[in-house]
Write a protein that binds this DNA or RNA. Structure first.
Lengths: 339, 339
DNA sequence: CTGAAAGCGCTTACAG
DNA sequence: CTGAAAGCGCTTACAG
């Protein structure tokens, strides 16, 4: 590879010291306009781009944000990623991504993302163990959690959505508008906070309407179409009767719809179905899915903004909860136009 | 933030020089077993993680791969990203992502991803202008292209899929199995190589069967459901008649299906529809979409592997074309089980 | 406003 | 097998 221009080359060509070059590049200190101009010319002429590792080492800032995911899965992540990337780049940060679930263990153990290569970390759901979160807090390293509260005793900022009230709202809709009484619920993965909060909303809604919670109508879908598919078939084979099903998330809804279809049950005539997230595909399901819109791109943006504030030593909110919105389509039994 | 342990701290605690610490960490040169053990203990005790910028600066390798996309869009990218990330991490590389379409211009201009912060670049479709590709080749910087051939005169390795033969195969199916004669085609964005190759396959198939290409049956979908939706409505309003429609990609298919539905046309009875990609949602469309499976995760893996070889100075193939596969579902008129 | 110099935390010839 | 030293390309007090 050809050797690249360094700050010394620029300094030499412009006839100034490297300190001055650094200053006009970083706008740190006023520099004589004429000299600054000469430096800029030299930069252009040499096609000079500062070496970021040298910068990092000297300034002790990496200008890089890290994103930790369990795995790079379905299209749920895409909008979140887009939001994070946009904010990070606008603020001049690079974005490093690491899936903690898929990596080779030896790599995960000692390398991955952390204080040595990022200024701060965005941690989605359970991508990092509590121990490591505690360690990062102890050394005062900037971290923002997405869709997950900090473990007890730690004060790490969180950005999440109104899971509980969103869930309650959609179940309210099933009960109040459609008059359903037997409503099943599908959980996500174990210990998943989104799932727990949505289940809470489901229970609150039933309670509010004086309806008992039937444990036989609650099963685990894992936020995975195949698991959800199997769960629904099992409910049916056990003889459980339900008029409606709150699928916990839209991924589950895909498996649910398929399972009901295979069982000869019509949606919404025999069983109404509602989801959560308003994923990209929700409107193209048949029937179009009534669901709760989760502003996931916005979560990404907010989390990135908070992290940048943290990195800069500014104050951030401990907890940011973004509003969700009920999106009525047809799978609940409403006959409005597809949105 | 607490000061972190450095290599000197480790050396001191282990009673050796920093050179020795570096050697046991990097396995470069044999080190006395006992001494190595003492170093490892010190590393653990101090929770030492090498500072990657220092490493980068001293070794002149960043251990980071860059991925350039136009924008972080639909769920097409997700599997590709997963493939890239997995290979990169297994090989000990970090992954830096940048959407060249969305970034603030000043950032794009002088920073972004390049020789100063990555060892090599993965460039998806048209995320980088020809000029910049030429410059990178000139300085001998490792680059691998995904789903796009290098501009004339440049020799940059490519990983892509069998667009042309895949397209021909699915159109052959429409003609040979179902006997359709009037087959429309939807293009992707202008200058998109995938689209051009698929159109070529479409034309070749018609030609092979002695059928004329009717320019009135070709419209632009842009690989965007909304654009495709409008394009189909326009075809219909113009009075164009077609028995089948090859949508160019699955994103287009979503808009196509909606447009046909709104126009009161049944799929496949009135118009057969086939796509390309086999996106995550293809099987959950109604009817399930007959399409061409594009091994996009594999493209990501291969491209990452090639790039790593390039970075290491090894030889790579100039062009890697991964096979596609016809996936028959129901939107073409076949009545097999949903796959 | 500008320059000389120290230093960021590593790797890597060079000696031994 | 091991250590002392130079050097990677910047930033940033410190003087002036």
């Amino acid at each position: 590879m050809l050797p690249r221009a360094t700050i010394s080359d620029v300094a030499e060509r412009a006839g100034v010291s490297i300190s001055t070059v650094s200053r006009v590049l970083n706008n740190t200190v006023p520099v004589d306009a004429e000299i600054a101009e000469k430096v800029r010319e030299a930069v252009l002429a040499l096609n000079y781009i500062p070496h970021s590792a040298a910068r990092t080492l000297a300034s002790r800032r990496t200008n890089t944000l890290g994103l930790l995911l369990l795995d790079i899965g379905g299209d749920f992540y895409t909008p979140m990623l887009r939001g994070i990337e946009a904010v990070a780049n606008q603020a001049g940060y690079d974005l490093l991504i690491h899936a903690t679930g898929s990596a080779a263990p030896e790599y995960t153990n000692r390398r991955a993302l952390g204080e040595h290569n990022t200024d701060g970390l965005l941690v989605f759901t359970d991508a990092l163990e509590n121990d490591e979160l505690a360690r990062l807090e102890k050394v005062n390293f900037p971290v923002v959690l997405l869709h997950r509260s900090p473990p007890k005793g730690l004060e790490i900022p969180v950005v999440t959505v109104e899971n509980c009230s969103g869930a309650r709202q959609v179940v309210d809709h099933l009960i109040e508008v459609h008059g359903y009484r037997k409503i099943a619920f599908l959980q996500g993965p174990a210990d998943n906070e989104d799932s727990e909060q949505r289940e809470k909303g489901y229970r609150l809604s039933l309670k509010k309407h004086g309806m008992p919670v039937d444990p036989g109508l609650i099963a685990r879908g894992g936020f995975d179409p195949e698991v959800a598919h199997a769960a629904v078939l099992e409910l049916i084979s056990k003889g459980q009767k339900f008029e409606a099903l709150f699928t916990g998330d839209d991924d589950n809804a895909v498996g649910v719809i398929q399972a009901l279809h295979e069982s000869g049950l019509r949606i919404p005539e025999d069983v109404a179905v509602v989801g959560f997230d308003d994923s990209l595909f929700a409107r193209i399901l048949t029937p179009p899915l009534t669901t709760v819109r989760s502003p996931i791109e916005q979560v990404g943006r907010e989390a990135a903004r908070q992290l940048i504030r943290l990195v800069r030593g500014e104050v951030v909110e401990a907890r940011r909860v973004l509003p969700t919105e009920l999106v009525i389509r047809q799978s609940c039994g409403c006959h409005c136009e597809a949105k």
